[in-house]
Design a protein around this nucleic acid. Structure first.
Lengths: 204, 204
DNA sequence: GCAAAATTTGCATAGCACGCAATATTGATG
DNA sequence: CATCAATATTGCGTGCTATGCAAATTTTGC
């Protein structure tokens, strides 16, 4: 016998997992087609067919065509999140650790981002999508920092800190994807380290 | 009698001014219509008509409908730019001064941004456009900093610094537009000041 | 004025994105 | 395993977006 909450949660969980799998199938299909034929020669219809769904279903998963080329939503490992929320170190050090942990799992996104970067050279709409891909981190980080500080996410401190960290992530990821050298985590480490230097006076 | 360069420049200048005027006319028309009727009830055709141009000409100016809702490209005052490039103060202080000077002139953008913020609540595509509006600053700032440092704009220092400053601008502008209180310049002043604090250890 | 260059426009068209209603699938339950 | 409710998928219809192309119009320098 189950409690009601259990039942609902399990059902919701099953279904949401299934949705995530389908979404990822569509993303892969979109990426594959676009990588090999170019964005202009790929229609949503083709993507749907490649993913084994109907055109109409595509739009149940993505609000517009280009969204299927974005990386999937971030999911920090629950343990890592808990570690940060209850962390005893400095805010900056603890959030850095969380991000670096996450970045160990991001290696597989390189190909995806590479494609996104390349086609965004020629398609103004995709520039927007590319930038948005990085900013997913900002919201998530903002929420976490606000939570740890016991603040509302609207306060300036968490928002500013999240924005700054997202900036570092953006620079790191761009460097990583474009340079094709080193690990994502190492690029992020460098960027985070460089952050502090920006606010220290340099002797010429 | 003119030198060839003069002629070309003057022609280019006349034409580009005219283009800027027309672009601004279209932006105003788009904003007015969207503000009063909602994005869903405004077609590009309507915007074109309101602006006194043909539908086809609209797309000569903007690559896609939503782009007409973005603020116009930034133009720092040439003297302010020169002041920064040749500035003798700290990099951070000098760039702050440039930005604050610029921000004295953005008061008129509040209404525009307000509309952009509000409709982006319900239109996923416009979230992308909204974020892009802030990031125009990032590219421009990156160029300027790289130039002052005598570096290529691809280097990490100017890119990271620009990204961080853009983050501060984003937070400041968001606060300014949404709160409807204080001047844009003052919001930016606060954000820039808060930046430094992020990297200083706080006594709990 | 005249010729060259740039801009604006109309027309045609492929494809996007969404509302709606019908159908199919899934997951809990007895 | 039969059934029911909730959810997901699909087809159809439709208005709008966005682009190529070529013709018409306007601007500019001489």
């Amino acid at each position: 016998m189950h409690h009601k909450a259990d039942i609902i949660n399990r059902a919701a969980d099953l279904r949401s997992r299934r949705r995530m799998r389908t979404a990822e199938t569509i993303r892969k299909a979109a990426l594959r087609l676009v990588a090999e034929r170019g964005l202009d020669n790929v229609t949503t219809e083709m993507i749907a067919q490649e993913a084994g769904i109907s055109l109409r279903t595509f739009f149940n998963y993505f609000a517009f065509k280009e969204e299927a080329l974005m990386p999937p939503p971030i999911d920090f490992a629950p343990e890592a999140v808990a570690g940060f929320i209850n962390g005893q170190g400095s805010l900056l050090a603890d959030i850095a650790e969380l991000l670096l942990t996450q970045f160990d799992n991001v290696e597989e996104d390189r190909a995806r981002l590479r494609v996104l970067f390349q086609i965004s050279q020629t398609h103004p709409k995709l520039v927007l999508v590319r930038d948005k891909a990085f900013q997913q981190y900002e919201e998530e980080i903002g929420r976490l920092i606000a939570h740890r500080l016991g603040l509302d996410a609207q306060h300036r401190r968490p928002r500013l800190m999240a924005a700054v960290l997202a900036a570092a992530i953006k620079v790191a990821m761009t460097g990583w994807v474009m340079s094709d050298q080193g690990t994502a985590a190492n690029h992020l480490r460098s960027s985070l380290a460089a952050l502090a230097d920006l606010f220290v006076e340099k002797p010429a």
